[in-house]
């Protein structure tokens, strides 16, 4: 679409800019300030230069947490995005069943994150939890508190259960926005449902899928409350993701300087990857349309 050229459009954006900048810029500056100082308390601080960055970058536990984080976010995206699209395609288009599906699918999204972890603790307990008891009943000893592999599977199950509805809802809204005329034209041409999906639905969903993918990437990369409550980062360090490790440094040891340096590096990683995703998705769309 050719856009109008007009700098007065800034006035429409200004309220958003002010309200976001108020909460965004000053805390960010403060964290940058923290990251180059050793802070003992209010007014007691020593300039240390880039020492914390050096320390954090050579921290082998951080490398480990970073690798786990990549694996986790990668799996999340690979499972949730296709699954969400499939569910959105299957969901009824109108009538009471459409309303019902929309309400049901949104329910997991509405539970506070710490509560999600708590529910899953009970749900997976082998003695009083439905999932745990069922798996144990099938003859497989299940205990996610002692086996790293099972802890990962449980976390992934919880994550997919919790967040696939978000992808499905966005994809569903995108699908509903496609004018009926496109489908009628495809019907006249005798297009297969795969062709309809590939040439009409998928390109038209590009906008909402970009949002879904970026949201899922960012939120899964920053995941904290659910694994913290469910596994506490264990067994051992097997599910200590970046945020859990960061909180250990920031709150557990109260090392504000290193934690701030860590946060900034963390932020830069997400920034770079999100930017790459964004550019790739933008250009893929241009090639097809």
């Amino acid at each position: 679409m050719n856009k109008w050229e007009d700098n007065k459009a800034w006035f429409l954006v200004l309220p958003v800019f002010i309200i976001v900048a108020f909460s965004a810029i000053i805390p960010l500056m403060t964290v940058v300030n923290y990251s180059i100082q050793d802070i003992f308390g209010p007014g007691e601080r020593v300039f240390v230069g880039v020492e914390w960055f050096r320390e954090v970058l050579s921290d082998s536990r951080l490398h480990e947490a970073l690798l786990k984080q990549f694996l986790f976010s990668g799996l999340v995206l690979l499972i949730e995005i296709p699954l969400g699209i499939i569910i959105a395609l299957m969901m009824p288009k109108k009538g009471w069943s459409a309303s019902l599906s929309l309400v049901l699918i949104a329910l997991p999204l509405l539970i506070p994150w710490n509560v999600i972890g708590t529910i899953w603790i009970v749900f997976t307990r082998p003695d009083i939890g439905l999932l745990g008891a069922t798996i144990n009943g099938m003859g497989i000893p299940f205990d996610h508190t002692s086996s790293p592999m099972q802890a990962w599977i449980t976390l992934m199950l919880m994550e997919v259960w919790h967040w696939t509805p978000l992808v499905a809802l966005l994809a569903y809204a995108g699908l509903r926005a496609i004018p009926e005329a496109y489908f009628q034209a495809a019907k006249i041409d005798g297009a297969s449902s795969w062709a309809v999906f590939k040439y009409i639905q998928l390109p038209k969903m590009r906008g909402v899928l970009t949002i879904a993918l970026l949201l899922r990437f960012m939120d899964s990369f920053l995941i904290y409350a659910e694994p913290f409550v469910l596994t506490g980062g264990g067994p051992g360090n097997s599910t200590t993701f970046l945020s859990i490790y960061l909180v250990k440094i920031a709150v557990g040891q109260f090392d504000l300087g290193p934690a701030a340096a860590f946060s900034l590096i963390y932020f830069l990683i997400i920034l770079l990857l999100s930017w790459l995703f964004y550019q790739v998705l933008q250009n893929v769309g241009k090639g097809e349309a």
Binding site: I26, M29, T30, N33, Q37, I39, P42, R45, F47
Partner: peptide
């Protein structure tokens, strides 16, 4: 509390 330093 913003802990400003000259370099930043």
């Amino acid at each position: 509390w913003m802990a400003w330093t000259l370099p930043t």
